[in-house]
């Protein structure tokens, strides 16, 4: 296993989030080390996506603190939030590609805000990324509505990693993909973390993915982090939910 930094890049403290009277996350504490690959598992509706959205400040928790590289994101000014978000590459559960932009325009959307690139260079940059994701050259000029669900998902991943952010967040990157494409994505996450020294959080339902790329796993259940540990420790876990997850693998 690669060397892990002792530097905590994300610190979540006493995070509580509810919608109206519906408690979703209760008193969550979580540390993420630099260059670590964390997997989040949990039943549908357990609040995994909500946790992710809290971390990047898209949802405001009712209580608690979230520090990114020492900077507080909860209730911070929108200017500070914008700055913190530059460290992140995010893939939403449904892809969330911009309908009105072509594939390559989607992928380089943030990159060209900070780097002057000719149209050709930008397209080539997008191309180099999608080839690694098992996508075809021909899709560059298509629009998201012309892609299959799995292709959209991979374009969204391309968009998240295009300008090499420090922290990657993937919300179910392999759901809806065939096993072969899924394993391409797993490898990509693994390699990005190990080669580029990126920190990654991946929400997934796929236990084989977890074993492949995660350094650590957390299970969210009953509004809390019910289990934390290295993937291989799951096999001996007495936690019933973990057992069920492994059984249905």
């Amino acid at each position: 296993m690669k060397k892990k930094s002792k530097n905590k890049i994300i610190k979540v403290r006493n995070l509580t989030k509810s919608f109206d009277n519906n408690l979703i996350l209760n008193n969550i504490n979580l540390d993420l080390f630099e260059k670590e690959s964390l997997a989040i598992i949990g039943k549908s509706g357990s609040g995994k996506s909500v946790l992710l959205k809290c971390i990047i400040g898209l949802l405001t928790p009712n209580k608690g603190s979230i520090k990114i590289d020492g900077r507080e994101i909860v209730n911070s000014s929108s200017k500070d939030k914008e700055k913190i978000l530059l460290d992140f590459g995010v893939t939403f559960q449904n892809g969330a590609l911009f309908d009105s932009l072509s594939v390559w325009e989607n992928i380089v959307f943030r990159t060209i805000k900070f780097k002057k690139l000719s149209k050709n260079d930008a397209k080539n940059l997008a191309l180099s990324i999608i080839l690694n994701l098992g996508l075809d050259k021909n899709i560059l000029n298509l629009y998201p509505s012309e892609l299959s669900g799995g292709m959209q998902k991979r374009v969204a991943i391309a968009r998240a990693i295009c300008d090499k952010p420090k922290i990657l967040l993937f919300d179910e990157p392999t759901s809806g993909l065939d096993p072969i494409t899924g394993s391409i994505i797993d490898d990509l996450i693994k390699n990005t973390v190990s080669r580029l020294g990126v920190t990654a959080i991946t929400i997934t339902h796929d236990m084989s993915s977890v074993f492949k790329f995660a350094d650590r796993v957390i299970l969210i259940n009953n509004n809390q982090i019910e289990w934390v540990g290295e993937p291989k420790k799951m096999n001996n876990s007495k936690n019933q939910t973990i057992k069920n997850f492994l059984k249905n693998k």
């Binding site: 959205k53 990047i56 898209l58 929108s78 914008e82 978000l85 530059l86 992140f88 590459g89 995010v90 939403f92 559960q93 449904n94 969330a96 590609l97 911009f98 309908d99 959307f109 943030r110 805000k113 900070f114 968009r159």
Partner: peptide, 18 residues
């Protein structure tokens, strides 16, 4: 509204765009 419910507005925020 479509952009809102399909997370595209959230995505804009994460991509350095207000």
């Amino acid at each position: 509204a479509t952009m809102r419910v399909s997370n595209q507005i959230d995505a804009l925020e994460t991509l350095a765009t207000r």
